[in-house]
């Protein structure tokens, strides 16, 4: 278990360094088109070959990781904070406050968010930079993705409020913020962390799907999602297995996070 944890820490450290050093590690700009060598196989010049427009896949993977592994956790943090706030309030207060919060949660769960996102994209100005476009995409994902997590947090908070140690704390005069800070928050941390880690790959995949609908990362900026879209061209995956690398990176990074999370949960 210790070895696995060590591997996970190493993977995450390497990923972080790679993201930070993308500028130095990439042999070319992510947007540069080597038009004489489109769809080239891996070589010394292009470690992972080139894509259909002749862009260096390695460079695009590095920058794609930077975009997705920075913005997806930020969106996940935002969504977890919202979920913690709404779910926590509902569970803590109960009664009509809980009913109101649950109504809001149900409302958000029943919103056809895909169509909502398409509508939002349709009304956004067209002349926005790719960086702004990707930020808007992840911000929307964060804003709309909290409802399911809030249900989990609400249930957890309600259970805690019925637990003996909370009764005892109340009997000892604990209330309000002190009760939340000392008893509720530490006990909900595991659930909140789980929701946070679960949201990251969900948002990365969601961004890839949105790309197919026009709400993803705008060209030429890469993201893990836009790189995963290349797998739609399934006829080319078998002869060019290196196209699977973004998927492999995503799985390894998320698994590493989860290894650390499990350890954290066990400790809790």
């Amino acid at each position: 278990m210790k070895t696995i944890r060590l591997i996970a820490i190493t993977v995450l450290a390497v990923t972080a360094l790679t993201i930070l050093g993308a500028h130095y590690l990439a042999p070319a700009g992510y947007e540069q088109q080597f038009r004489e060598t489109p769809q080239a196989a891996p070589s010394m010049h292009h470690l992972l070959g080139t894509d259909e427009l002749g862009r260096d896949r390695w460079a695009r993977l590095l920058y794609g990781m930077r975009v997705s592994l920075t913005l997806a956790p930020l969106a996940a943090l935002f969504t977890t904070a919202l979920a913690g706030l709404v779910g926590g309030i509902a569970g803590y207060f109960g009664g009509w406050t809980e009913r109101c919060c649950k109504l809001l949660i149900d409302l958000f769960l029943s919103v056809p968010w895909l169509f909502l996102l398409i509508t939002v994209r349709a009304v956004l100005p067209l002349n926005v930079s790719p960086e702004a476009s990707v930020t808007v995409t992840f911000a929307l994902l964060g804003l709309l993705g909290w409802a399911a997590s809030a249900r989990v947090i609400c249930a957890g908070a309600k259970d805690l409020m019925k637990s003996e140690f909370v009764w005892m704390a109340r009997a000892s005069g604990f209330s309000g913020l002190k009760l939340i800070r000392l008893h509720l928050m530490p006990n909900l941390r595991g659930a909140l962390l789980a929701q946070f880690w679960i949201s990251i790959p969900v948002f990365i995949i969601a961004e890839a799907n949105l790309g197919a609908l026009g709400l993803g990362v705008a060209e030429p900026l890469p993201s893990l999602g836009s790189l995963l879209r290349e797998l739609q061209d399934s006829v080319m995956v078998r002869p060019e297995p290196w196209r699977l690398l973004p998927l492999a990176v995503l799985i390894v990074v998320i698994s590493s996070f989860q290894v650390l999370l499990n350890k954290q949960e066990i400790r809790n």
Binding site: E31, Q33, L53, I118, R121, A122, L126, N127, V128, S129, P130, G211, L213, G214, G216, A218, E219, P220
Partner: peptide, 22 residues
């Protein structure tokens, strides 16, 4: 094609934003 045109026009100093819409 839009992405290639984006790079072509960059050579004459024009910035193009590619937008895909449903």
């Amino acid at each position: 094609m839009a992405t290639m045109i984006q790079q072509d026009l960059k050579k004459i100093g024009i910035k193009v934003n590619v937008v895909t819409l449903d």
